[in-house]
């Protein structure tokens, strides 16, 4: 029992949880209003989109892949939602169409990754551009294809300033809540629970680890590698689209460039959460905790009077430091383990 507890304390996730609590306490000491639970919960709405994208990305990184196109899918989903609505479709149907577009975009990435040996970074780099470009060009394209926007002078009118005036109940998605729990946080928690079950309790989740640790052995073990990859990238597309929808509601405006700046933060969250860029390691809880940590960190920095320009410097620095630190710990542990084994086998002799 005690050994179990020690093992648990030694986990990365536990360390993160401690770090998160410390962070909240420190920020609270600087500014007591921070400790107000309602404030704290509602302030998460500033960064739920990061988590919505980072959570499924964790699954991809476990397969030793990566998807950097999510930030473009956010904008694509947002503009799809807005344009569909302007075309006269009910906003909630438009919402599902936007999510569908996100899934399709993810499947495109997944199919490309699964059917070639090209580095996923390069593939999603290409699609990062392509999706962002499509999101930008979509209004004009719809006009050119002869679709009719309702009320306005064509879809192109929304190209730069976005689509605002969305229905009130849609805007409630980001601004409403149940009691003290805002809807976006609820969406994050439900999505995290869903992904957590998928990752840790289903054979699909197991396949992700198997592929990430040894894709060849997975193939030799008859793991359906291709369909698993397509599915996991589709999930990432879904997460990014969800983030796009929540952001749209948060800003009460659908824009094609929403979420553009989030890439660095998203990847930092996943890596800080314990996922290994070389595959095979990572948990949903870790990413969730890391997401809150970085989200609050950003707010704390801003509250302390640091300008928002400094934030990417801190986040970028954090990313590098965390990875370097993890590498160091691994090497150190390995060396210690070897010394231990040496002692034991020499004694036995």
């Amino acid at each position: 029992m005690k050994a179990q507890a020690i093992k648990w304390i030694k986990t990365w996730e536990f360390g993160l949880a401690v770090l998160l609590v410390l962070e909240i306490l420190v920020l609270g000491a600087i500014n007591p209003t921070f400790l107000n639970l309602e404030n704290l919960l509602y302030s998460t709405s500033d960064f739920t989109h990061i988590l919505l994208a980072a959570l499924p990305l964790t699954l991809i990184i476990i397969t030793a892949g990566i998807d950097i196109s999510g930030v473009s899918i956010m904008g694509l989903a947002s503009i799809t939602l807005g344009l569909t609505w302007v075309a006269g479709v009910n906003i909630f149907i438009a919402l599902f169409i936007a999510l569908g577009v996100g899934i399709l975009a993810g499947m495109f990435n997944g199919a490309f990754v699964a059917s070639t040996d090209v580095n996923p970074l390069v593939i999603t780099l290409g699609s990062l551009f392509m999706f962002a470009g499509i999101a930008m060009g979509l209004p004009g394209l719809l006009d050119a294809l002869g679709f009719k926007a309702y009320g306005a002078a064509g879809f192109a009118a929304y190209m730069y300033e976005g689509i605002s005036g969305l229905p009130h109940n849609f805007n409630q998605i980001a601004h409403g809540g149940i009691g003290w729990v805002p809807y976006p946080l609820l969406i994050v928690l439900i999505f995290a629970a869903f992904l957590g079950i998928i990752l840790h309790k289903t054979r699909f989740g197991r396949y992700l680890y198997l592929i990430g640790v040894n894709a060849d052995a997975a193939r030799y073990s008859n793991v359906p590698v291709k369909s698993t990859l397509v599915t996991v990238y589709a999930l990432s597309g879904l997460g990014a689209a969800l983030a796009g929808v929540v952001l749209t509601s948060y800003f009460t405006s659908a824009r094609s460039d929403l979420g553009k700046e989030a890439l660095l933060t998203i990847i930092t969250v996943v890596v800080l959460g314990g996922a290994d860029i070389y595959g095979g390691k990572g948990t949903i809880v870790g990413t969730l905790l890391a997401g809150f940590f970085i989200g609050f960190l950003r707010q704390g920095l801003l509250a302390m009077g640091v300008t928002s320009d400094v934030v990417p410097v801190v986040v970028g620095g954090l990313l590098v430091v965390v990875v370097a630190l993890k590498l160091f710990i691994t090497t150190y542990n390995q060396r210690r383990l070897n010394q231990q084994a040496l002692r034991i086998s020499e004694e036995r002799r």
Binding site: L121, L264, I267, T268, V271, I277, V313, G316, L319, V320
Partner: peptide, 11 residues
């Protein structure tokens, strides 16, 4: 490299 340069991209 991807992590390092992504980090410095932000910095």
């Amino acid at each position: 490299p991807i992590i390092m340069t992504l980090g410095t991209l932000g910095v």
